[in-house]
Design a protein around this nucleic acid. Structure first.
Lengths: 195, 195
DNA sequence: CGAGTCGTTGAACGGAATCAATCGTCGTGG
DNA sequence: CCACGACGATTGATTCCGTTCAACGACTCG
């Protein structure tokens, strides 16, 4: 989620800052949707209770993301939000935001753009997850995420990256190591560089 | 994709009808984005050429869907569109559409809603693909897609469904069979019913 | 009729998941 | 300030099951 677009258009709404302790719920599945949230720092996981009583992880929102945006257009949440770590969120009143968007086509267009980007990103990850080979999956992921210098800054722990591309963290570590030993990859503090 | 929203708001744009033969390309990956498409009848598959030279199925658009919506905000297509069967397309000029949206907040809101739904669907599939067990993956998928009668109408070949949830078609067939033998599932022509 | 594709089943293999143990680091509270 | 717990990162050994390759029947379409 592109935070710049969001911040650009939503600053005049004067959102409410809100601290959240680790393990604390922001909202529960079934709650009425009254707010729109933006995660400033920390980590929030979205979980859906399945029919059989199990729990399914829907998404892990990281710093700089808005989340449950789709809820803007439904009356109640279809998932629960729990802080994985201590987090700081921005809260916008849903009705305020909708009215604001109605009045400011530019803002709405910004949001539309954001959604469009998100759709593409999701499709990309989807495609990556269909690659069977762990090695190829890792390489394809890095290729997609890296900048012009063929470098990828890791905004989250490797563990989460592994989850994002559908691998266990153990496998992910091993593949990184193999790629490094094969001189196809370089690792520096928070960066991965393709060679 | 919700066809009602789109049809409701975009009729005054007087789109151009366009027939498409089976196997014909609507656009190629890398082409300049000049139009926005809406699939009236038929079936279109979106394919992306992967780095290894292979091809990956991104999405299968069915009758009543718009597709490659994300391209509205990028200059060139990131995938190719090929008709799976003889299809009928509605074509809107991209620039016209953008101007129209700018002037009609209701239309833009409708599009926004559509995007939101799509984001949710994609997230769901994403999480399903993180389930390791093929059996659980199939069950979870059906649970999410089925209607109130616990039935799922298959709008695409089983092969494509298998791909959608990240399984080989062989595995998918076998799991369906196992579930049927375990009396947890019923198969009738184009339907799957959970028991 | 033949080409193409979907659907189906079999056998064997490989590689990712799984379980488990260790180390380092960071934050927290006593 | 140090002890402790929590968690990320790492590596090893083992197992299992989804992939892969292969072959075949059914069906449609040209």
């Amino acid at each position: 989620m592109n935070k710049h677009i969001l911040e650009q258009f939503l600053t005049d709404l004067k959102p409410l800052g809100l601290p959240l302790m680790k393990g604390e719920h922001l909202f529960f599945q079934g709650d009425q949707v009254e707010n729109f949230y933006y995660l400033k720092t920390g980590k929030i996981k979205l979980i859906r209770n399945t029919i059989e009583g199990g729990q399914a992880l829907i998404h892990v929102a990281l710093a700089g993301e808005s989340f449950a945006e789709a809820s803007l257009f439904s009356s109640e949440y279809h998932c629960s939000a729990i802080a994985v770590s201590t987090s700081e969120i921005m809260r916008y009143k849903k009705s305020d935001l909708l009215v604001y968007l109605e009045q400011k086509p530019a803002a709405m267009k910004g949001l539309l753009k954001m959604f469009a980007q998100q759709v593409r990103d999701l499709r990309t990850v989807n495609e990556i997850k269909n690659i069977r080979s762990a090695k190829e999956r890792v390489l394809t992921f890095i290729s997609h995420e890296m900048n012009e210098d063929k470098e990828l800054y890791l905004s989250m722990p490797l563990k989460d990256v592994a989850y994002k591309i559908g691998l266990t963290h153990e496998t992910f570590y091993r593949e990184l190591k193999k790629l490094e030993q094969a001189r196809k990859l370089q690792r520096r503090d928070g960066f991965l560089k393709l060679l």
